[in-house]
Design a protein around this nucleic acid. Structure first.
Length: 596
RNA sequence: GGGGCGGUAGCUCAAUUGGUUAGAGCCCCGGACUGUCGAUCCGGAGGUUGCGGGUUCGAUUCCCGUCCGCCUCGCCA
C-alpha cells in the first residue's frame, strides 16, 4: 500500500512519486487553496500539502475534510520546501498530494495523541490504549521492550541456553502468593493454577538434562498491585546445571552489562557484593540504594549512656537497638513541619517515632538535643557530624528500627534531593537467611523460596538443626542472591537443592508433614532421587528492567495492556461476568453477592 | 482488609460563606484565510457536577453510604 514510511523521504527523493500511509498528526488549513497535513506513522512524520494551484478540485475538497487521527493513504510528488522545518527529520521536503484515500475516518477523539503536552489522566489513556499507543513515546517503549527481549534471547543463545515453554495450566502450590485458579471441565471439582513462576519446571528441566534453559514467560500472582507491581507480569527465567554461585553471578552480571551497553551505551563496572546482614545493618533494607549515603549507624552503646527513656526502653527490648542517620546539610532543610511528618511515617512500620536533632555551631539543637548532652562528643565522632547536619534516630527492636529507618532514609533522600541523577548502582546481595520465624503464624517462612539450597558450608549444620531451635534455624545461610539496581530488585536467584533429603528437611522445617510434602511436591521429590544435577539460576523481572531503561516509576508504562490497581483491564473490561451455563460446565457455582 | 488523595462538558480545569441560567481553553460543528508547522481569526453546539440517600427555602459545595481511579501499609514463597 505504501512506497515509503513517513521517516524515509529526504532531499534526494525530490521529484519522486511516492505513496504514504498513516494518521493525520496535525492539520493546518488555509481555506480553499492550501492545506498542510502532517502525516505520522510508526517511523516518523512527513508534511503533505494540498495545493489548489497544483492539485485537482476533488482532492482539495477531500483534504479539507480531514481531521486529526484520520487514517489516510496519499500519493504525490516529493518537492523541496520553501523553508525547512528543523524539528522533524523530513523537514526539508514535503509531498504535494495528487491522490487521497481516507482509509478510516475517526470520530471525535477522547484525546489527541500528538499533543504530548496536554495528555489526559492515565485512566483515559488506558481506556483508549490504542490511541495512547500511537504516541511516539509509547511506540518507543514497545520497541525498547522488544529490543530487550531480543538481546536477551541472543545473549543466552550464544551461551548455549535453549528456550523451553513450560505449562500455563499448573498444579496449585499453596506456598507463596495467592494463586489464580482455573476450573477443570474434564476433572470435576479440580482446579488448575496459573504459574507464579516456572520454578519447579525449570528444575525438572535440569534433572531432564537440558543443562541450560531460558524462557521469557508470563507469571501470575493474585496479590494487590502497586505502582511497580502487576498481578500478571513477565520474567526472564533461566536455569543452569553444574554451576556454583559465582559462575551464575558472572554470567548474569555479564548479561546486565551487555544490556546496559547495548541499550544505553553505559559501561557498568563490576558489581559490588554485599551480604544480607550488611545491607540490613547499613541500609535497613535487603535492596539497598547505594547511590547516596544516609547510612544507618548503630549507636546502641552510646544511647545506653544517655538519660533518655525512649533509648533505654528500646534497648531493654528483645534485640533492642538505637540507630542514627546523619543527614548532611539538613539543619536548614528539616523544618518542624518536615520532621513532624517523620513520626506518622515510621509508625506505619511499627516504630514509635523518629526523633531528630540538628547540629549547628558545635551544639545539638531542637528535637531531642537536650537528651544528647552526655554522649555529644562520641556521637559527633561516630556519625562524622559536620556543622549544619541533622540526625534522625530510631530506637526499637532490631527488625522494626531497621525497617523504619530504612524506609525513612529513602523518603528523606527522595524528598530532599539526596539521589544523584544519572547514576547506575548495581550490586549483588547474598548470604540471605534460609528462614524467618513468623510470630503470627508460629512457623518458619522461606526468605527466598523453599527450593533454595543452604550454602555448602552450612549444609551439615542445616541437616542437623532442630526446628525448635529458632536461633539456629534463623542463622542458616542460603545460597541465594539478588541483583539490585538503584535500590530496586531486578533479578533474584539461587543455587537450588538437588538432593531429596535436603529438600525434605526444608519442607519439614516449614511445618509440612512428610505426607503433606509428598502430596504437594511428590514429582519434585521423586525427580531429585533420579540423579539430579547440581543447578541454579535466576529470574529477572522484565517489566522492571524496561522501567529502568526508559526511566519510569510506573509499571503500566511498560506494559502494552496493563491492569488497574483493582485488576481491571480498563480497555477490554476484563474480568467480566459469565453465563451460568459456562459455570455449569465447569462444575462451579458463584457465591458472589453481585450478579448482573 | 487498613490509611490518604481524587472524580464537574469528549479532554484539561474553574466556580466566592451553601445562592440567579455551572464557566474557560482544547476537541467537535459552521464560516474566513495561499506557506503553515501546537497555524490564525469569527461564530456555534456540547452538562444526570461518578451513583444513591440525607440536611436545607436552596447542594458542585455540608453529612452518610457506595462505585471507580491513583498512592500506600498489610500482602507479594
Amino acid at each position: 500500500m505504501r512506497t515509503h514510511t513517513c521517516s524515509q523521504l529526504n532531499e534526494s527523493s525530490i521529484g519522486q512519486t511516492v505513496t504514504l500511509c498513516g494518521w493525520v498528526n496535525a492539520y493546518r488549513g488555509h481555506g480553499g487553496g492550501l492545506i498542510f497535513v502532517d502525516m505520522r506513522d510508526r517511523a516518523g512524520i512527513t508534511q503533505v500539502v494540498f495545493d489548489s494551484d497544483d492539485g485537482n478540485e476533488a482532492v482539495m475538497e477531500a483534504g479539507d475534510r480531514l481531521r486529526n487521527e484520520d487514517c489516510i493513504q496519499i500519493t504525490g510528488v516529493v518537492r523541496a520546501r520553501g523553508k525547512a522545518n528543523p524539528k522533524i527529520a523530513t523537514g526539508a521536503i514535503e509531498v504535494l498530494v495528487t491522490e487521497l484515500e481516507v482509509l478510516s475516518k475517526t470520530k471525535k477523539l477522547p484525546f489527541i495523541p500528538s499533543n504530548e503536552k496536554d495528555l489526559p489522566n492515565e485512566e483515559v489513556r488506558l481506556r483508549y490504549r490504542y490511541i495512547d499507543m500511537r504516541r511516539p513515546v509509547m511506540q518507543n517503549i514497545l520497541r525498547t521492550r522488544h529490543r530487550v527481549t531480543k538481546l536477551t534471547r541472543d545473549y543466552f543463545d550464544e551461551h548455549e541456553f535453549i528456550e523451553v515453554e513450560t505449562p500455563v495450566l499448573c498444579r496449585s502450590t499453596p506456598e507463596g502468593a495467592r494463586d489464580f485458579l482455573v476450573p477443570s471441565r474434564n476433572q470435576e471439582g479440580m482446579w488448575y493454577a496459573l504459574p507464579q513462576s516456572p520454578q519447579l519446571f525449570k528444575q525438572i528441566l535440569m534433572v531432564g538434562g537440558c543443562d541450560r534453559y531460558l524462557q521469557i514467560v508470563k507469571c501470575f500472582r493474585d496479590e494487590d498491585p502497586r505502582a511497580d507491581r502487576q498481578a500478571e507480569f513477565t520474567q526472564i527465567d533461566l536455569e543452569m546445571s553444574f554451576v556454583d554461585r559465582d559462575q551464575v553471578l558472572e554470567l548474569i552480571e555479564g548479561f546486565a552489562k551487555h544490556l546496559w551497553k547495548e541499550m544505553l551505551e553505559v559501561e557498568l563496572p563490576d558489581f559490588p557484593r554485599m551480604t544480607y546482614q550488611d545491607a540490613m545493618d547499613t541500609y535497613g533494607i535487603d535492596r539497598p540504594d547505594t547511590r547516596f549515603d544516609l547510612k544507618l549507624v548503630d549507636i546502641s552503646d552510646l544511647a545506653a549512656k544517655a538519660d533518655f527513656a525512649v533509648f533505654t526502653d528500646a534497648l531493654a527490648k528483645n534485640k533492642g537497638v538505637v540507630k542514627a542517620i546523619r543527614v548532611p546539610g539538613a539543619a536548614t532543610k528539616f523544618s518542624r513541619k518536615v520532621t513532624d511528618k517523620f513520626n506518622p511515617f515510621v509508625e506505619q512500620f511499627g516504630a514509635g517515632g523518629a526523633p531528630t536533632a540538628k547540629f549547628v555551631d558545635g551544639e545539638f539543637s531542637t528535637g531531642i538535643s537536650k537528651f544528647l548532652g552526655d554522649i555529644k562528643d562520641e556521637l559527633i565522632e561516630r556519625l562524622g557530624l559536620e556543622d549544619g547536619d541533622a540526625v534522625v534516630f530510631g530506637a526499637d527492636s532490631y527488625n522494626i528500627c531497621t525497617k523504619a529507618l530504612g524506609e525513612l532514609r529513602l523518603k528523606i533522600a527522595r524528598e530532599h534531593d539526596y539521589i544523584p541523577e544519572g547514576k547506575w548502582n548495581f550490586l549483588w546481595v547474598y548470604d540471605f537467611p534460609m528462614f524467618e520465624y513468623d510470630e503470627e503464624s508460629e512457623r518458619y517462612h522461606s526468605l527466598h523460596h523453599p527450593f533454595t539450597a543452604p550454602t555448602k558450608a552450612e549444609l551439615e549444620r542445616f541437616m542437623a538443626c532442630d526446628a525448635k531451635d529458632v536461633d539456629t534455624v534463623e542463622s542458616i545461610v542460603s545460597d541465594g542472591y539478588d541483583m539490585i539496581c538503584n535500590g530496586s530488585e531486578i533479578c533474584g536467584g539461587s543455587i537450588r537443592i538437588h538432593q531429596q533429603e535436603v529438600q525434605s528437611k526444608v519442607f519439614e522445617l516449614l511445618g509440612m508433614s512428610h505426607e503433606e510434602a509428598k502430596l504437594k511436591f511428590s514429582f519434585l521429590l521423586d525427580a531429585l532421587t533420579y540423579g539430579a544435577p547440581p543447578h541454579g539460576g535466576v529470574a529477572f523481572g522484565l517489566d522492571r528492567l524496561v522501567m529502568h531503561l526508559i526511566g519510569t516509576e510506573n509499571i503500566r508504562d511498560v506494559i502494552a495492556f496493563p491492569k488497574s490497581l483493582t485488576g481491571v483491564d480498563l480497555m477490554s473490561e476484563a474480568p467480566n461476568m459469565v453465563d451460568d451455563e459456562q459455570l455449569e460446565e465447569l462444575h462451579v457455582r458463584s457465591t458472589a453477592k453481585v450478579h448482573s
